[in-house]
Computed example of a mutant assay.
Amino acid sequence: MYQLKQVREMKKLTWIMAALLCVSLWSCSEDENPAGEEQKEDVVISFEGELSEPNSSFLATEGEEDGFYMKTAFSDPQNVVSFTHYFSDWGFGGGFTYTNGTDTATPGYANLSAITGAGKTGSVYLIANASSYTEARITNLQAGTYRFKGAWVTNTTYDYLAIKDGNDGGSGLVAKFEDGDWFMLTAVGYTDSGTEVGSVDFYLADFRDGKSEIVNTWKWFDWSELADAAYITFELSSTDTGDYGMNTPSYFCLDGVTLQEN
């Protein structure tokens, strides 16, 4: 009788252990792949290795005349996205360029450097000037394969010093930020036909509600709400605005622009 009871207890323990193992495996599977969905691959845009000289940036040589500038577009080495690009004889005018600038101390528009002095993961990153004259636009060239996910963002040295010290290299228009001030980047998604699909905001400087933050590291900017957009444009706004528009320099930096498989 004792041996029979012992066998029953062993069978019961074995059943319990098997049940716990099944639950454990099921839970792990659900955590790794919710709802049994296929894992999606990310593609991260990079221009690393595209510049041969230190503290240099991309500047096109051909384009169409557009106001004060020539306008064209360039794509990443994988041809996943394209970027608007405005230029002239005197250099970069607006839209996007890529750079390996490291100068975190010199004020003024001629300094095409991030306040970080480097990219998020390498030396080359994107810098943009977004204004009503020079649209900063990223277009998805492979919409059938990929959708927008997000990017890392930070300030340029130019706008960081203008916000922090009121020094933009000499215009005398900018003011050092005080309580209540802010500087905001807005990403707006559009369909192929130009219909807006949504927008998301990111504060590059925020002095509201007792805060005094000026972004000086790379931070993630989530574009999941704009995932299905055909292209994204970028707008900048600030509390430091005068009779002729925004006084804060209309510059920002991006790195690691990321898209995800459909």
Rank of each mutant, 00 (worst) to 15 (best):
L173Y: 13
T14I: 08
S238M: 09
L4P: 00
V124G: 04
E196A: 13
T145I: 14
G245A: 07
R137V: 03
G49H: 07
G36D: 05
E41V: 09
V174A: 05
E9F: 04
A60L: 01
G170Y: 02
V153F: 05
F92R: 15
Y251G: 00
P54I: 07
T116V: 13
S132Q: 12
F87I: 02
A162N: 08
Q6A: 12
L236G: 01
D165T: 09
T61G: 14
N33D: 11
E41P: 00
G242C: 08
F207T: 01
S82G: 08
S132I: 06
V215S: 06
E135M: 08
K5Q: 10
E32G: 07
K40G: 11
T241F: 07
D222L: 09
T72R: 10
E30F: 09
R147Q: 14
L25P: 00
E50I: 00
G122W: 01
D206E: 05
S132A: 12
P77A: 06
T239R: 02
G170K: 12
K176Y: 03
F207M: 03
A162I: 01
W26V: 14
G256F: 00
G93C: 02
D201I: 03
A118R: 15
K164L: 11
S82Q: 10
Y251E: 06
V257L: 15
L21H: 02
D181N: 11
T84A: 09
D201S: 13
T104M: 15
Y146W: 15
S46H: 01
E48N: 07
G245L: 10
F92N: 11
A110M: 08
T186P: 01
L254C: 03
D31K: 13
S238K: 07
D181F: 05
I232F: 10
E32M: 10
Y231T: 01
S56M: 05
K164G: 03
S24W: 14
C22I: 15
L161G: 06
E213D: 13
S24Q: 06
T248P: 00
L126K: 06
K176Q: 13
T258R: 11
P249S: 05
P54F: 09
T156M: 14
A18L: 15
G150F: 13
G117C: 09
I214E: 08
S75Y: 07
V197Y: 11
Y86M: 03
D192C: 00
T99I: 09
T134S: 14
A118D: 06
M17S: 13
L204G: 03
T145G: 05
E38M: 13
F183R: 04
E32V: 04
Q3A: 15
